[in-house]
């Protein structure tokens, strides 16, 4: 399995890890277009080099990997972000995925898993581990259970999407899920992608609304009614 033509930027504030990952990917034929240790330069560099995939650590000292993920995925079309993070950072991983990351891999994953994840990310597929499925499922559940006045219309999962997400979270592969639910392999993938897209779209709408409300407040204008 080689990764020719796929350019990758590695963002991690720890040099041992950053260089190790870069070397692993180079050995497998990927082109490392840049490595950096902070979110600000990650954004600046990716504006010029347009990598296919950004491998993003979320624990970047004082700067936020989540915010960098949001800006990169919004500003640079064609560049996708794959979060490569420690297993303990559940809340941050969820925020990064809502902000636009295509998937999430724990740092303890093997090189084969990493290579596979980077390849899938580069063609626009979501990299859904069991852990991420649990987080996304939990987020939909939270929105359904917790009434929130500022969010009158939270996105919901269809019954089928819920079924699929639960199976992913329980560690079944797409093929196993397809067999179990008697649907095609591609349909399973589509359901998974759609759960993520809905969440990201909703997050963007929420952010825009927040910004508008905030902007109006700052100018001290009277409410339109």
């Amino acid at each position: 399995m080689t990764g020719s033509e796929i350019s990758v930027m590695v963002v991690d504030d720890h040099p041992i890890w950053r260089d190790g990952v870069a070397r692993d990917l180079t050995e497998r034929g990927f082109r490392i277009s840049a490595t950096t240790g902070d979110a600000v330069s990650a954004l600046r560099i990716s504006r010029t080099v347009h990598p296919d995939v950004v491998l993003m650590d979320l624990n970047l000292g004082d700067t936020s990997g989540v915010e960098a993920t949001r800006q990169i995925t919004q500003e640079i079309p064609g560049t996708r972000v794959l979060v490569l993070s420690a297993s303990g950072e559940h809340a941050d991983v969820l925020e990064a995925v809502k902000a636009g990351a295509s998937g999430y891999l724990v740092k303890s994953a093997s090189v084969d898993e990493l290579v596979d994840a980077v390849r899938r990310t580069s063609v626009g597929d979501a990299v859904f581990t069991a852990g991420l499925a649990g987080l996304v499922l939990g987020e939909y559940r939270r929105m359904a259970v917790t009434p929130d006045d500022s969010d009158p219309d939270p996105p919901r999962l269809t019954e089928r999407e819920t079924d699929v997400l639960r199976q992913v979270a329980k560690g079944l592969t797409a093929r196993q899920i397809a067999n179990k639910l008697v649907i095609s392999h591609r349909t399973v993938e589509n359901h998974v992608q759609s759960t993520l897209r809905k969440l990201q779209l909703h997050n963007r709408v929420e952010l825009a609304r927040y910004a508008i409300e905030h902007g109006l407040d700052q100018e001290g204008e009277a409410p339109p009614d």
């Binding site: 559940h90 809340a91 969820l94 069991a130 852990g131 987080l135 939990g138 987020e139 979270a169 560690g171």
Partner: peptide, 8 residues
């Protein structure tokens, strides 16, 4: 062992 839980 893999653990999937909500972020909350």
């Amino acid at each position: 062992v893999n653990v999937s839980v909500p972020a909350t």
